[in-house]
């Protein structure tokens, strides 16, 4: 379990919780995303997220939640509109620049973990730092993250041997490896049983409490209510509430 008293994030990573005065972290302005069928996954949507905020994106399947997350992560580009994260116009980035942006700014957590099964837990966590060419201190930081997330005993294990909750913790550790100012989580409890889901929920609450900006996509109203400081509901690619 998470040692809450010590905090989820290593001390250096902790920031101040969001306040009304917090600067904008994400600025999505009039964004649309259409696919080849010309159906709009997002339709002139605008959204602002403050630094230190925890935003939950809710909505039925096909409402555009994951598409919006992909645009913020620089995994996809809008057909219209602008996406600015931490002052960077993400919608204008080339593939290489988007990759560098993700390394520096974004930590991604997926519904199905997306861990690489032929790498050990430690090697999975180290991966973002290694891809970014960071070597000094990364192994220590990975160890520290595994300890604070309570999975250090699995450091040398392969992901296939872990429970769903443990795998998602590894995925969170990997997402936090490069100290990203923004954590994006796509259905982080969607593939987990109740107990594991509760573990991850607690983890996200602790992370946010320590100042981590989080945007998560979820169907889980309980998770949104427990973790998010604000919820946005999407329907047919537009903000419904």
């Amino acid at each position: 379990m998470t040692p809450a008293a010590e905090g989820v994030l290593p001390a250096d990573d902790r920031g101040a919780p969001a306040s009304l005065a917090s600067p904008t972290m994400i600025d999505v302005v009039d964004v649309s995303r259409r696919y080849e069928s010309d159906q709009a996954a997002l339709d002139h949507l605008s959204l602002h997220v403050a630094e230190g905020e925890c935003l939950a994106l809710l909505g039925p399947s096909g409402s555009g939640k994951s598409t919006l997350l992909n645009l913020i992560a620089g995994l996809d580009r809008p057909t219209e509109g602008t996406v600015t994260v931490g002052g960077t116009r993400v919608d204008r980035l080339s593939e290489a620049a988007a990759a560098r942006y993700r390394r520096a700014t974004v930590g991604l957590v997926f519904q199905f973990f997306n861990l690489l099964d032929d790498l050990t837990v430690t090697d999975n966590v180290l991966l973002p730092a290694q891809i970014a060419g960071k070597s000094a201190g990364s192994r220590r930081r990975a160890q520290q993250l595994l300890e604070t997330l309570g999975i250090d005993r699995h450091a040398d294990a392969y992901p296939g041997r872990l429970s769903g909750g443990e795998r998602q913790r590894v995925a969170v550790a990997r997402a936090l490896m490069n100290k990203p100012p923004l954590l994006l989580a796509d259905e982080p409890t969607g593939a987990l049983d109740t107990a594991s889901g509760a573990e991850v929920r607690k983890l996200l609450i602790d992370l946010h409490a320590e100042g981590q900006t989080i945007v998560m996509v979820t169907h889980d109203e309980v998770l949104a209510a427990a973790v998010a400081t604000r919820t946005v509901r999407l329907i047919d690619g537009q903000v419904a509430s």
């Binding site: 995994l75 390394r103 991604l108 997306n114 891809i131």
Partner: peptide, 16 residues
């Protein structure tokens, strides 16, 4: 291809 996607999501550039 899925693993390639994971690597790219973690910041791997096209050259890498």
């Amino acid at each position: 291809v899925h693993d390639i996607g994971v690597h790219k999501s973690l910041g791997m550039t096209p050259k890498q």
